[in-house]
Each structure stands twice: as structure tokens, then as C-alpha cells.
Design a protein around this nucleic acid. Structure first.
Length: 542
RNA sequence: GCGCCCAUAGCUCAAUUGGAUAGAGCAACAGCCUUCUAAGCUGUAGGUUAGUGGUUCGAGUCCACUUGGGCGUACCA
């Protein structure tokens, strides 16, 4: 509908040249009595033309070449909105498109030929993924799906660091638990990793090597084994949620391939860094940021900023058109440094889109549970998936805008899992599947020959909702907002449930019944496609 | 102290990125199954969009200040 109007207005702009001066946008009014599509063009022009908006609207309408077989009515409303009402005949064409395109309906070629990198999860292998990581994992994967639906070729990437202090502590935690298993009396420091998974890693080392690791260093077999096992667990956890990364990028490779070294040299050559008190500093204050930051400590060890910049440079070198980073809000202070550095080095940092999601607050019996991998007082993503299932987990994290703080009462989530809206969507899909099973025995079939019979209020609303899907996918991808799809699907399912209640198929005249089946089938396709973007299954029976 | 983010119905969240009368679900109340799945549908009730001011044809949305919360503010990642 909007595409049609856009070309209609472009044609009119040949006559009314002032239309070229403004960015004409079309909105879908909230209230249906305001039509299918509305334009605020007249109001935007009031200042420029110094005329009453309604007067301008009249002029625009007079200039439009309106085909009354497509548009049934144009009106001026309120302060100067131009509202367009479309003919039902025009709308029903969409049902045919949906039935033709099936699984591909909603996909666009908008960004065909472009490549995107989505970096998400990126948790270091120090322990199981927590519910907090779950939000990152699910949103990242869904954003990747959305980009694919708009034509991007997407690489899902996981960046990790298996060196440094936290990994030494991890290795030593395993070493101590191992010695404990051998019967030694150990003192386990409070700031070591307390979780039971450390013990089970120690156990598997013991059964593999007996007591031969008694004099092994923390950074040897212990760290190695811990990293391997934990990574296996992380991948398994993610796979349960249908998340598969293509690339696992090890920070260490940046050192091995001398990327860090050469970046340091580049900073020095470009006069972007300096030495002070034995450390190397980056001149971030000259690049518009708050203050200079250390990139190499006086001990000679780099801080995270240096490899982060080097890492992003590899993304540029890998020729991505779009690079998405998804972080928790604890990273909100770090990325401006990386961006500024990239820009100073001549990279187009606008190709990097940093998304910050707010934390998930877990409450248990009304008390906020503070989570820390060290202290092992977290709730794991696996436990959550065990409890409510993968579909509910994915839907739950996808249904809210990432910028909002999420509150999550564990007890309540377990008890009321039936009330999760995901079931409402899946139920609509299962109902349609049930209809299909039934009509097979009734000598009925889906037909698009008499779609013009679909004039009931519930039918028309459902058809209009179906029209919206392609646009919602584009918008959700453009704004990186998976929750838009969830919201849309809830509205679509609501429209369907109403249609189902009031527009019966059995016992209705054959042509109408078969048109209704076609509408139901189209709805099934759109629900399924929407759910597949969210990574949620579409069951045939419930 | 400073920086980023957040505040919408009793609860959890929407609101087409500045549009017309702020909408759903849950919880509460009243109804609807002898025909396609009642995990559904219909109705009632629930709001000074945290507060104050500003910007304009028009503000939940933008700006300023205030209040309350989250995350940072390291030669940790």
C-alpha cells in the first residue's frame, strides 16, 4: 500500500514541485476509522507555504491521479492528515503472494550482496552461561536472522579471550580441586571459581591422568581442560536454543599474528599514543573522548582496549559492510574508546553498530539475586531452558526491547509459564493446522478464486495485518529491534483468533469456505515465518 | 562527583522513532463450548505516561532541571 502511494506521490510531484522539498512518509493510523494509510505531508508544508494545512491537503489530493478501483476514499482529517482507504480487492492480492512465496514471504533483497558480522555472547570460558548471557545470545541470534531476512549474508561470531588473569585463576581453581580429590588438604581462596563445574572438571582430569598432574602448573593441563570442557558446555547450551556461531575468534590469535604489535606501531607512527609512567597511553582526549586511557600497562601487558581495536580492524579487513556488536550494559563505557580509535585510524566506524542491552534482574521470592560467575550464585541458562523450554526462553528474551531493564521472577516464571504469550502464537498456528486436517475429510480445499467474498470485519482486519509483515521485518532489522516481530505476531494471532471465532469454515457456502481456508493458510505461513525469525518453533498440534 | 541507560494500568510490557482517542497480556469481575483445538472469544474495571518547566500545528517520544533505579567511572575483561 505504501509503495503504491509512494509512486503515486512521486508522479504528482512532477506537478506540485513543493512535494519534492519534503520527506514524505506514510503511516498506518492507530485507529481504523482513519484509513489504511495516512500522510502528514500537508502539515510538514505549512511553514514553507505559509498556508493552512487543510488547504494544502486539498491541493495535493486534487493533484493525485487516483484510481478508484484501488483507492476507495481519500479524506482530510484532523489538523491536515490525508487518509487513504484501499479497496478490499486490492488487499486480497497479498493472500496470493503469501501462498506463492511460502517460507520466503517477508524476505527481501534490500541488502542483497552485502555481508554482515554479528558478534554476540562472547563470554569468556570461565563458567556456564547464565540467564544474563541468555538475553545477549537470543537477541544476537535473532538480529542475525533479521539481517538475513533483509538480504545480508551474515556471519555469527563469538570473540573470546583464553589468556590473562581470570583464566589463570580458573586453571588454579581446577588445580586446587584436583589436589583436593587426591586427598590433599587445600585452602580454596574466596575469589576463586566456586562452582561445582570446577569439581567435575577436576574429576575428569583425575580419572584421565590419575595423580600424575600433582606438579602440573595451573596454566598447563588444568587451564586447558577447563577451557575445553566449558566451551563444549557453552556450545551445547547455545545449541539447545538453536544458536550456532560460525566463527570463534580467539583474542590470542591477534598476538600470534603480530596484529597487536603492528597496531602499537601504527598508533605510535600516527602520533596517537605516548609513554607516561612506564605505560603506553592512547590520546583519546584529543579524539573527543573524556580522557586518555592506558593501552599497555607498565608490566608490558596490554589492556583490553588494544586487542579490541585490533579485533575490529580484522573485521574491516574481512570486508564486512555492517558489523554489529551486542554487549551488556557493563560495557557501555568501553566501546566509545574503540570507536574513536578506529575512526582515528581511518576506518569508517559508522559501519560498526554497537548495541547495548540492559541487564536481566533476577528476583527470587521478591529478593534480587546478584549474579557472579565467581561466586557461583547465578542461575544458568541451561537451568532456565530445562525449566521452561527453549521456545519460551527465546520468546521471553525477544519480546522486550533490549534497552529496557528486564525483571524476571524465577518462581513466577516457572509457575505461570502457560501464560507466556508464545503459547498464544503457537496455538494460533496449531489451530490452523487442525483446520487443514479437518477440511481434508470434508472435500474442501484452499482456493483463491473467490477471495473477494472475504468482506467480514474480522477477515478484513486479518488481511490488513498480513499486509504489515514485510514492513515489520524491514523495520525490525533496520532498528535492530527483534521485539517488533514479537509484538506484531501477537497482534496477528489476536486477529486470527477473532477470525476463527466469528468466521466459521464448516457449514459455510463452499466458495466462501474455500476463500477462508486460503486466508487461514496465508496466516499460518506468516506466523510460521515470524516465529522462525524469532527462533521459536511452530507446532502443528498442542 | 562525572558518564551512559531506564521510569507508561496493581504486575510484565507495547505505542509505526514527533502524529489523531496511550494499547495488549497477566491478575480482578461478568458472560460464551451438542459443528473446524476454550492454551480461545466477548464485555466491565483499571492512567495527571515519576515531577516541573520549555521547544511546535502536535510531546509518552525532543531539550533543561528535579526525584528514584541500573551499569560504568581501573595500568580488570
Amino acid at each position: 500500500m505504501k509503495n503504491y502511494l509512494t509512486s503515486l506521490f512521486a508522479e504528482t510531484a512532477q506537478k506540485l514541485s513543493y512535494l519534492k522539498e519534503i520527506q514524505i512518509t506514510f503511516d498506518r493510523p492507530k485507529v481504523e476509522t482513519h484509513g489504511d494509510v495516512s500522510s502528514n505531508a500537508a502539515m510538514l508544508l505549512t511553514k514553507m507555504l505559509k498556508k493552512n494545512p487543510r488547504e494544502i491537503a486539498n491541493e495535493i489530493i486534487a493533484g493525485l491521479n487516483i484510481d478508484s478501483t484501488i483507492i476507495s476514499k481519500v479524506e482530510i482529517a484532523g489538523p491536515g492528515f490525508i487518509n487513504f482507504f484501499f479497496q478490499p480487492v486490492f488487499l486480497i492480492e497479498k493472500i496470493k503472494n503469501i501462498l506463492d512465496e511460502q517460507d520466503a514471504f517477508g524476505k527481501s533483497k534490500k541488502h542483497a550482496g552485502k555481508r554482515a558480522n554479528v558478534e554476540f555472547v562472547s563470554a569468556n570460558p570461565t563458567g556456564p552461561l547464565t540467564v544474563g548471557h541468555g538475553r545477549n545470545a537470543v537477541c544476537g541470534d535473532t538480529i542475525a536472522n533479521l539481517l538475513e531476512w533483509t538480504g545480508y549474508e551474515v556471519d555469527r561470531e563469538y570473540y573470546f579471550n583464553n589468556a590473562g588473569r581470570q583464566m589463570r585463576v580458573l586453571g588454579d581453581s581446577v588445580r586446587l580441586r584436583y589436589l583436593e580429590l587426591l586427598g590433599d588438604v587445600i585452602e580454596f581462596p574466596e575469589d576463586y571459581y566456586q562452582g561445582d563445574y570446577i569439581k567435575s572438571i577436576a574429576e575428569s582430569l583425575k580419572s584421565e591422568f590419575g595423580d600424575s598432574l600433582r606438579n602440573e602448573s595451573a596454566e598447563g593441563k588444568f587451564k586447558e581442560k577447563a577451557e575445553k570442557e566449558i566451551f563444549l558446555d557453552i556450545e551445547k547450551t547455545l545449541q539447545r536454543l538453536k544458536i550456532n556461531h560460525k566463527n570463534f575468534f580467539n583474542e590470542n590469535s591477534l598476538y600470534e599474528e603480530k596484529k597487536i604489535e603492528s597496531l602499537l606501531k601504527t598508533f605510535a607512527d600516527k602520533n596517537l599514543s605516548y609513554e607516561k609512567e612506564g605505560a603506553i597511553w592512547l590520546k583519546l582526549s584529543e579524539l573527543g573522548n573524556q580522557q586518555d586511557k592506558v593501552i599497555v600497562k607498565s608490566t608490558g601487558e596490554p589492556t583490553y582496549r588494544l586487542p579490541d581495536v585490533a579485533y575490529h580492524i580484522t573485521k574491516f579487513e574481512r570486508n564486512y559492510d555492517l558489523m554489529v556488536d551486542l554487549f551488556g550494559s557493563d560495557h557501555n563505557a568501553t566501546y566509545p574508546d574503540v570507536m574513536a580509535a578506529l575512526q582515528a585510524l581511518g576506518y569508517d566506524s559508522s559501519k560498526v553498530k554497537v548495541l547495548i542491552h540492559q541487564f536481566v534482574t533476577i528476583t527470587q521470592n521478591g529478593e534480587i539475586v546478584k549474579m557472579s560467575t565467581r561466586k557461583a550464585n547465578y542461575v544458568t541458562l541451561d537451568e532456565l531452558t530445562d525449566e521452561v523450554g527453549a521456545d519460551v526462553v527465546r520468546y521471553f528474551f525477544n519480546m522486550r526491547n533490549i534497552s529496557t531493564h528486564m525483571n524476571f521472577d524465577l518462581a513466577l516464571a516457572k509457575k505461570h509459564s502457560d501464560e507466556n504469550p508464545v503459547f498464544y502464537l503457537q496455538y494460533a498456528h496449531a489451530r490452523i493446522c487442525s483446520i487443514i486436517r479437518t477440511i481434508e475429510n470434508e472435500n474442501l480445499t484452499a482456493s483463491t478464486d473467490h477471495l473477494d467474498l472475504l468482506i467480514a470485519d474480522e477477515e478484513q482486519k486479518l488481511i490488513r495485518k498480513l499486509h504489515q509483515f514485510e514492513e515489520e521485518v524491514l523495520l525490525a532489522a533496520e532498528y535492530f529491534e527483534p521485539n517488533r516481530i514479537a509484538t506484531y505476531l501477537e497482534e496477528l494471532a489476536a486477529s486470527f483468533h477473532k477470525f476463527y471465532t466469528f468466521c466459521r469454515i464448516l457449514g459455510t457456502e463452499k466458495n466462501l469456505a474455500e476463500a477462508r481456508i486460503a486466508l487461514a493458510l496465508a496466516t499460518k505461513i506468516v506466523i510460521k515465518n515470524g516465529l522462525s525469525i524469532l527462533g521459536v518453533s511452530a507446532p502443528e498440534r498442542m
